[in-house]
Simulated assay, not measured.
Amino acid sequence: MTLPTIPPLLDAPADLPAALARAIDNKTKPLGSLGRLETLARQVGMIQQTTKPALREPAILVFAGDHGVVAEGVSAYPQDVTWQMVENFLAGGAAINVFAAQNGYALRVVDAGVAHDFGPRPGLEDRKVAMGTRNFAHEAAMTPDQCLQALRHGMDLVDALPGNVVGFGEMGIGNTTAAAALMHKLTGIPVAQCVGAGTGLTADGIRRKQQVIEAAVALHAGAAAPLEVLATFGGCEIAMMTGAMLRAAERRMVLLIDGFIVTSALLVAARLQPAILGYCVFAHCSGEHGHRQMLDALDARPLLDLGLRLGEGTGSALALPLLQAAVNFLNRMATFESAQVSEQSA
């Protein structure tokens, strides 16, 4: 399978950066006074290669999958919570349903690898790769073929989206363990600094989680290439997100990146295609231990810091109004000339 090739963000008309700077600076405001919104407006303009960017039909994809490593006692919740929460998504009762509806997202729920048979269900994208991954404490979580299948499904899902903005979310008991392992392997940050409470582990539970990851890393010491690391330690939902992110950036979409698990999928994508980072808007810094350092490893500046650690794409949904505000001021705000307002003197 050929992975998407992502052009660098600066691979655009040579005069576009200067044109965007003029468009932003000529609005009726002191230079730089809209802060990060100006940075966002410039980024979206560069992604879409225009001084008149537009956000069309934003969608959020929530990928669900189970993890065999849960058998090692790394989660405060039983594995059944994954499929139960998928049912909650389909019934419209989860936080992501509320925030997506509030902020105008189309919500798509994806069964990437849940250990449960849902049968045909309205509103559920059935892209199941396996009934959960294997236990990476003893063997690789996925075969290479399963990992590639997940990547391909992610790309196909993005190809079916009609808009140009996609947010990412996930659900999967045990997936903070997978994300922490990916973080360690791909950044070299010590495991102790990658591991957090996840869904609510005690201090003893966190230590247990750390020990499981450290032992697994030793067992799979030969895994080094990004896709090999993903197949060894990742999840079906994480791999599917990675494929979706790569395709979205190739299509010059805006990617809204959620918390710890979503960022771990991006970490893999960025090791494969570093240019993807130019297409990413980092929604927030999670309350999950390790997320700040993961963001730092990607040189990422999150928009929000609300102590969120729910997942589901909730941070992505909450960041959309800020992205919309950035585009709106660029397109709708008066210029000094049109408003007949005197500009700053030299």
Results as ranks from 00 to 15, higher is better:
A14I: 14
L20I: 10
R22E: 10
R22V: 03
K27Q: 02
T28Y: 06
T28P: 08
L31G: 03
G35S: 14
E38P: 01
A41I: 01
A41Y: 00
R42M: 12
V44A: 10
G45F: 03
Q49L: 06
T50Q: 02
R56A: 10
E57F: 09
V62Q: 13
H67I: 04
P78E: 04
Q79P: 04
V86M: 11
A91W: 09
A91Q: 13
N97E: 07
V98S: 13
G104A: 00
G104Q: 01
Y105Q: 05
L107H: 04
L107D: 07
R108W: 06
R108D: 07
V110I: 15
A112W: 08
V114D: 01
D126I: 07
R127K: 12
A140Y: 08
Q149G: 09
L151E: 05
H153F: 14
G154Y: 14
L157Y: 03
L157W: 06
P162S: 09
N164K: 11
E170S: 05
G174R: 05
T176L: 01
A181V: 04
T187F: 06
V195S: 02
G196P: 03
G200S: 04
R208W: 08
I213R: 12
A216K: 11
A216N: 12
A221W: 05
P226K: 02
E228D: 15
T232E: 09
F233Y: 09
G235E: 00
M245T: 15
M245S: 14
M245R: 15
L246R: 09
M253T: 15
F260N: 01
I261V: 08
V262R: 02
Q273W: 04
I276M: 12
V281W: 03
S286A: 10
G287P: 06
R292E: 11
R292D: 09
M294P: 11
M294E: 13
L298Y: 00
L303N: 09
D305W: 09
L306P: 02
L308K: 10
T314G: 15
G315Q: 08
S316Q: 12
A317R: 04
A319H: 08
L322S: 05
N328L: 06
T335G: 10
A339H: 13
Q340A: 13
A346K: 08
